[in-house]
Structures are given as structure tokens and as C-alpha cells.
Amino acid sequence: MPFESEKFSEILKTFGETGSGEAEMMKKTIEECEAKRVGGEEKYCATSLESMVDFSVSKLGKDHVRAVSTEVAEKNAPIQKYKIAAAGVKKLSDDKSVVCHKQKYPFAVFYCHKAMMTSVYSVPLEGENGLRAKAVAVCHKNTSAWNPNHLAFKVLKVKPGTVPVCHFLPETHVVWFSY
């Protein structure tokens, strides 16, 4: 299956998506995958589970590699406020991780990257109604190469490179790390 902008018309014919919102989403995903690296980041768009594993292992080594993602106890529960559960936060990795973000595409595509100076945490959360989640959080300790217009800087009211930026990962994203 082709996955490149040069063959985009062929891809659209395969999925029958010409001129649709889905076609625009597919084009945006391919463009992001083909974009230049930022700040020394090593990246790869995996179009299969095997290629995700291969990339992650190539960056972390084959010994003692683990994959984690956010787990929510009840899938269709309404969005609510969560607080960190009493059990506490656990650091899983420091600078040895590959994060794979699920992309919008008709089949599985993950934007994987090994960014420098990141920490990965497991964070137990508890909702107002007692629902529990095991969230995965990633903290970027060096954001100096990020776009100054990144949403994180606007929300936090800070500038690139001044403070670490941490965020939770959705359930469909995967973090690989050495332990």
C-alpha cells in the first residue's frame, strides 16, 4: 500500500475518498510524516505494528523494552475531572523512550519519535465518580526547538526552552521505553 504524497491520487482511488474531508485528513497525515525533523528528533511513521516495533527496538535496543499506553477502566464513560490517585506517580523512563502517536488515516499509522530529554510517567487517576485510569504522561525537558506558536506555550503562557512541558497521552498512543 503506497504511503507518500507523490502517490496521493493512487491512495485516494484505493480508498474512494476523492474530495472528502477524509481525503484532506489523509493528506495532512502524509505531509506530517514527510516533514523535516525538528531539533535532532528521530522520527518515523509506522504503517504496521511490525514497523512500529522495529523502529522502537532500533532506537532502544532489543533487551528490556516495554510498551505502555493510557488505560481507562470504562471506555464510554463521560468526560470528567480526574485527580491523581493516592497511590502516586511512578517514573518509567528518563531519556530512553519512543512515543508513537496514532494518526488519522483509514488504516493504522503511528507517528513515532525518539525525542531527546524526555521523561515518561505512569499516573494513576481517579474520577469524581470513582472511575479509575492509568494515564501515561510525557515531560519534555527541552522545548527550545519547538515552534513558538505551539499550543502548549499559549496555554502555559511561557516561551520555548523556559520550562518543561508535560502532557497526558490518549489511549490510542503508545510509549516504548527501556527499563
Rank of each mutant, 00 (worst) to 15 (best):
Pro106Gln: 08
Ala85Pro: 08
Phe55Asp: 07
Ala86Phe: 03
Gly88Thr: 02
Val136Thr: 06
Ala115Thr: 14
Pro148Asn: 09
Gln80Trp: 01
Pro124Gln: 12
Arg132Asp: 02
Lys83His: 12
Asn76Cys: 10
Cys139Pro: 01
Lys96Leu: 09
Ala145Gln: 13
Cys139Arg: 12
Ala152Phe: 04
Val98Ile: 12
Ala108Lys: 07
Leu151Asn: 07
Ile79Asn: 14
Glu128Asp: 15
Val109Ala: 05
Gly130Val: 08
Val53Lys: 15
Lys104Cys: 09
Lys59Gly: 06
Lys75Pro: 01
Ala152Gln: 12
Ala77Ser: 11
Met116Glu: 15
Lys157Trp: 07
Asp63Ser: 10
Val165Ser: 00
Ala73Leu: 05
Val136Cys: 08
Lys59Cys: 00
Thr70Glu: 03
Lys154Tyr: 04
Lys154Glu: 09
Leu156Trp: 00
Ala115Gly: 08
Leu156Ala: 15
Leu92Asn: 03
Val68Phe: 05
Val72Pro: 02
Asp95Phe: 11
Ser93Asp: 14
Phe110Gly: 06
Ala87Arg: 02
Val138Asn: 12
Gly161Met: 01
Gln103Thr: 00
Asp94Cys: 09
Phe107His: 04
Ser97Ile: 10
Pro78Trp: 01
Asp54Met: 13
Ile84Ser: 02
Trp146Ala: 14
Ser97Asn: 11
Arg132Pro: 00
Pro164Arg: 08
Lys90Thr: 03
Lys90Ala: 09
Thr162Ser: 13
Glu71Thr: 00
Val158Trp: 02
Val158Ser: 06
Pro164Cys: 04
Ser144Ala: 13
Lys157Cys: 11
Lys96Ser: 11
Val158Phe: 02
Asn149Phe: 03
Asp63Phe: 05
Phe107Leu: 14
Lys83Phe: 13
Val163Leu: 09
Ala85Glu: 05
Ala135Trp: 07
Thr162Val: 09
Thr162Leu: 11
Asn76Lys: 12
Tyr82Arg: 04
Phe153Met: 07
Tyr105Ala: 02
Asp54Leu: 14
Lys75Thr: 04
Thr118Tyr: 03
Ser56Ile: 09
Ala77Phe: 01
Gln103Trp: 09
Phe168Glu: 00
